[in-house]
Design a protein around this nucleic acid. Structure first.
Lengths: 297, 297
DNA sequence: CTGCATCTATAACCTGGAGGAATGGATGTG
DNA sequence: CACATCCATTCCTCCAGGTTATAGATGCAG
């Protein structure tokens, strides 16, 4: 049996319908019917009961559905570890990052690291905002420059590199756009451009959900990439809190950035998996991060 | 990627040769070459370096080879759990057993259990002697009637059901076949029919390796099933220690059984995985085992 | 109560995948 | 230098897997 059949099974289990799952997987309904039948034949077990109402999991199907996520994740991690080993052998350090990484310090970090490790290359990999660990969780990167807090943070080693105030990104024609500085309480009732709900605490943080005295947030749009985020703001779907450096790294016609008072600052950190503690290459990269962000300049 | 490619990869990694692995997997060498190529393309990584001397793993290949056994085992366990759920739903208790299981008590155990659980069926599954946990390790059975000690015993719950002396199985024409009882020390220099080396402590136990004052064992044959075991003895390839009940359950022309002094007795136990502690069906079966083997009769 | 919508299953067909046979290329050894 | 041995490539064949069309079953709305 292969992961393709397991993924198909998972999709049908989630949707409760062959037709809907087929649509989501971009295959025809008969093709998916055959795949599920093939899986049941291979296992010698009925996984679904069929009816006009769709596909309901049997007890065996429930058991497999319970196992499937961990199994598929195990596969992905194994493949990631294999790719990681290949990168290491080729003297490539894969660095995930969110948004502007460590701002201006990023280039210095890379320069310092390459000086320390001649022959090595740093592969910077930008992550979508729907994956706040920037690849650390699934093992597709070795270290990551991240904004705190993020989901899964407790499972990773973290060193704070720098702190910067947060500001607000507004459409250029916004009624508050002329202000030199805006109090956060004046922004409480605005609609916001937010990250995906499944990012949990990450999204809450960038909505400053815990810093508005219980006042609820209005979400005007959900985006996953900086470009989409900027477009949504420029188009007036909402405003967004951002690190102050966003004014430099994400300048865009139609978007203005203003300092905000009454909201906590943003922290940039370097993160890596505990299993990499003994890895001199990772240790040196972390050292370079700390050095590059502690010296004045 | 599927498990078939991963198994192919594993075979090539173990053999260090496409040609030999192809032979072992019963596919042609070009077919295996293409499979490995397909896997490397899917991963975007070189797994082997090729030469006239065969296939050597790259660092990425080493990484994958390190992960593969656990990954494949995870798959097997997930499938086993799925089949287990199907069996449970169908009110079937799958019982693995070695050799004669719990001897004459086995039928009473099943009878008591079915009386306690009307509508349930006990599926008795005999295991080869190369798998001393009789399916518990890979999850293909719910409980197992086993002979102690066995590999992996520490990971399972075990209740001893009965103890019986060990005897020796000899070819009928053996020079000691006329004895009423034979001292173990008189058997030390005989060749033995043994279990496979990978069964470890199990094989040592049945060779009474720890009860011969350091004298080494001579292995005359290795077998995995009772029939092969009996044939090997009858053909004079060696002798073997066996539970006393073997004389009743494995009577065979050409093989005689004689009591042996100076060797520890054999213990039959019921074993089950710790995860099944809270399962009333498993608990009841264990209860039936204990009840059936404690009453006189 | 009947017709229609909606769901899965089956049949027929087509294309591409995957295995085998034959053979090529490279290299080590006697 | 010839041969053996290893992996790679080419060509061929058959089957797997997807699609389209349609069948069968069933629930719901009028």
């Amino acid at each position: 049996m292969d992961t393709r059949l397991l993924r198909s099974f998972t999709a049908v289990a989630e949707d409760g319908s062959l037709s809907r799952a087929a649509e989501r997987l971009f295959v025809s309904q008969p093709a998916l019917t055959k795949q599920i039948r093939q899986l049941e034949t291979l296992l010698g077990v009925r996984l679904f009961t069929r009816s006009r109402a769709g596909m309901a999991l049997t007890e065996a199907g429930e058991a497999l559905a319970g196992q499937a996520p961990a199994l598929l994740a195990h596969w992905e991690r194994a493949l990631a570890a294999t790719r990681g080993a290949a990168a290491r052998a080729a003297r490539v350090l894969r660095v995930g990052f969110m948004a502007s990484a460590a701002n201006e310090a990023t280039q210095e970090i890379v320069t310092r690291f390459c000086a320390l490790h001649p022959g090595w290359r740093v592969d910077m990999r930008q992550a979508s905002w729907s994956e706040p660990t920037a690849g650390l969780a699934d093992g597709s990167v070795d270290v990551a420059l991240l904004r705190l807090p993020f989901p899964g943070q407790g499972d990773l080693r973290v060193e704070v590199l720098l702190t910067e105030p947060r500001c607000v990104a507004l459409p250029a024609g916004h009624r508050l756009a002329d202000r030199e500085e805006i109090a956060f309480r004046d922004l409480w009732d605005e609609p916001y451009v937010a990250a995906a709900p499944e990012t949990g605490g990450w999204r809450d943080y960038w909505l400053a959900a815990d810093e508005r005295e219980g006042r609820p947030v209005t979400v005007g749009a959900v985006t996953e990439h900086p470009d989409d985020w900027l477009s949504a703001i420029a188009n007036g779907y909402g405003i967004a809190l951002a690190p102050a450096s966003a004014a430099r790294f994400y300048a865009r016609p139609g978007v203005v950035y203003r300092p905000v008072s009454g909201v906590s600052p943003s922290r940039v950190a370097i993160a890596w998996p505990p299993a990499a503690d003994g890895d001199p290459v990772v240790r040196d990269f972390v050292r370079c991060c700390l050095d590059a962000t502690s010296a004045p300049g």
